[in-house]
Simulated scan of single mutants.
Amino acid sequence: MTSPCDPQNAPVGDVATAIMIIDSKIAAVHSDTPGPDPELGALADQFTASVSAEEAEDVLDGACTLIYVFMKWLRECYEAHDQEVIEAVVPHLVATMRRMPKSVPPEAIPTMAGLVIAAGNGLSPGLWRAQYGEWTEAEMTPLEATAFLLAEHINRIADDDHTFATRMVTDALTSLEEA
């Protein structure tokens, strides 16, 4: 019996834009220049002002797809070492989010942990979240932080130059376009 939260039932969304956003956040965090990049901030503001509600929904679905893809990769990685992905990822994710109260309010942490647990169990995080109503404005930054933190977790495991997770998704998108 299939679940209503089966990823086959979920919209993929605008994964390209979602990965671009995550990649730019990773680059900003690992930049040699301290503080926020004003040029990046202006581009983000321009982008936000230019998207329609439907396009924003597509980016939101894309972010959920990224969370699913990242957790699928992490699940396979941890299972190869006889470890449970949820046990390995969720406590670290929650602890990190608790240290980010400006970006992730405490009341958003259970929802973000639920998204990751759903994805870790092979369910669509977006469809899992949809069971509880519409997304709220207060969940947008925590959703971005969740995808960012999962990408950073993958990058640490891959012992990469902070680009492995985004490169993995970008390469997959490129191969889909070429097929």
Rank of each mutant, 00 (worst) to 15 (best):
A16W: 00
A16V: 09
T17H: 06
T17Q: 10
A18Y: 08
A18H: 09
I19T: 15
I19L: 11
I22A: 00
I22P: 02
D23Y: 09
K25D: 08
K25H: 10
I26F: 02
I26P: 06
A27L: 07
A27G: 01
A28S: 11
A28D: 02
V29H: 01
H30P: 00
H30Y: 14
S31E: 02
T33C: 01
P34D: 03
P34F: 07
G35H: 02
P36N: 03
D37P: 12
P38Q: 05
P38G: 06
P38C: 10
E39S: 11
L40I: 05
L40M: 07
L40T: 02
A42H: 07
A42T: 12
L43H: 08
L43E: 07
A44T: 14
D45S: 15
D45V: 09
D45W: 03
Q46P: 00
F47K: 01
T48G: 10
T48Y: 07
A49I: 03
A49C: 03
S50L: 06
S50G: 13
V51H: 01
V51I: 15
V51P: 00
S52W: 04
A53M: 06
E54M: 09
E55K: 09
E57V: 10
D58N: 12
V59Q: 00
L60A: 11
D61V: 04
D61S: 14
G62Q: 09
A63T: 15
C64N: 15
T65Y: 09
L66K: 06
L66I: 12
L66H: 08
L66T: 07
I67K: 00
I67S: 00
F70T: 02
F70R: 04
M71T: 12
M71V: 10
K72A: 15
L74G: 05
L74T: 09
L74C: 10
R75W: 12
R75Y: 10
R75C: 12
R75N: 12
C77H: 13
C77I: 10
C77V: 11
Y78V: 09
Y78G: 11
E79M: 13
E79G: 04
E79P: 05
E79T: 14
A80E: 12
H81K: 11
D82Y: 12
E84C: 13
E84T: 08
E84A: 13
E84S: 13
V85L: 09
E87K: 10
E87L: 07
V89K: 08
V89Q: 06
V90Y: 04
V90N: 03
P91E: 08
H92F: 07
H92M: 06
V94I: 14
A95C: 01
A95M: 04
M97K: 07
M97Y: 09
R98H: 05
M100C: 07
M100W: 13
P101C: 04
P101G: 02
S103H: 06
P105F: 01
P105M: 00
P106N: 08
P106K: 08
P106M: 05
E107K: 12
E107W: 05
A108K: 01
A108I: 03
A108W: 00
I109Q: 04
P110W: 10
P110A: 06
T111I: 08
T111E: 01
T111Y: 00
M112Q: 08
M112P: 03
A113C: 04
L115I: 05
L115M: 13
V116I: 08
I117D: 04
